[in-house]
Design a protein around this nucleic acid. Structure first.
Lengths: 160, 160
DNA sequence: GTCCCTATACTCGGATAGCAAGTGTCCGAGTATAGGCGG
DNA sequence: CCGCCTATACTCGGACACTTGCTATCCGAGTATAGGGAC
């Protein structure tokens, strides 16, 4: 899985703390995680194209969430950055070789592909059930008070 | 996900039909699916290293299952070929930037990584619950009688 | 003092190089076989 | 006729090029702002 997924999830979580009438530039998002700004921008563009974040141009511009954090699932972010294709790709090799028959004979999909896709379906269901809002609510439990203090001190200098 | 996973699953399913005292060469496995023989061999080596299939050298040699098909899960095959690393890799970017604190302060794992890994756990559980034996039992339901006939006619020419 | 205009600086967006992992291929090491030879 | 030996041919196993997609970067298009000037 692409590394950008991790970046995207962290950035979306951080953007969820930005007031709806403000925005945070990509450079600040990169600074907060010490990420290469130009490359992170590429992933933020993907999130923007898929309607997850909203881009505000010009000075006092930046990114903000395009919809409430309760309506953005982790699956949305993963799909926006890594694409929504199945991880398992069935190339129908069963239709090749000495046992191949007419195309019309293959009515059901390959059993192997069905099983793999069923497993991916549970994975997607799990990620679809987790919203960005839940990630934010879980933050106080994971970050130490000292780190939270530093983050809160930095935050006002980043939003515009 | 690597294309070799698909090849490996199909080959293991085919090998499940080989009598325990016989073997099928990699070249025949490749022929049955019209796959590049040399490259398929690479994946079969991986299956052999992980104790899924057993390699028999010399003439009348080839591959056979190293244990009963009921004890080989789809997850075993996927892990052997694609590796058992988590698809989501947490690089701990939360420990960087202006809000970073001492290493000892990060006691719990990142909430984002926990959620991603939980989703992967359901994916693995699903694949672990499916054995190669079940794939074989599902074959008659998916392949047309005509294809089964051709496969059965080819099969004796491939095992040694 | 207030309104309008213009130059500015900051933002995002897409087009452009570099690199690593997966893809594809090859040749060498090892072994059970099959045939020939000797007893 | 039977047993042993040797040459053979077939197998797997690891080491070597190539290509696609992810990684990383830059510069151009667009816009709200801030300052200056006119009224």
């Amino acid at each position: 899985m692409s590394e950008g997924v991790e970046w995207g999830l962290h950035c979306v979580t951080l953007l969820a703390l930005v007031p709806p009438d403000m925005a945070m530039p990509a450079a600040k998002l990169a600074e907060f995680h010490e990420l290469p700004p130009a490359y992170l921008a590429k992933h933020l563009q993907a999130l923007s194209r898929h309607g997850i974040v909203e881009a505000v141009p010009g000075p006092k511009g930046g990114y903000r969430l395009a919809k409430p954090a309760t309506e953005i699932t982790m699956l949305d972010v993963v799909h926006a950055i890594d694409g929504d294709d199945n991880a398992f790709q069935c190339s129908e090799i069963r239709r090749c070789g000495p046992a191949k028959v007419a195309k019309k004979e293959y009515v059901k999909t390959c059993g192997i592909a069905r099983a793999m896709w069923a497993a991916e379906a549970t994975w997607r269901a799990e990620l679809r059930s987790r919203t960005v809002a839940e990630l934010v609510l879980g933050l106080p439990e994971d970050v130490s008070p000292r780190a939270a203090e530093k983050a809160l001190a930095w935050f006002p200098t980043a939003i515009r």
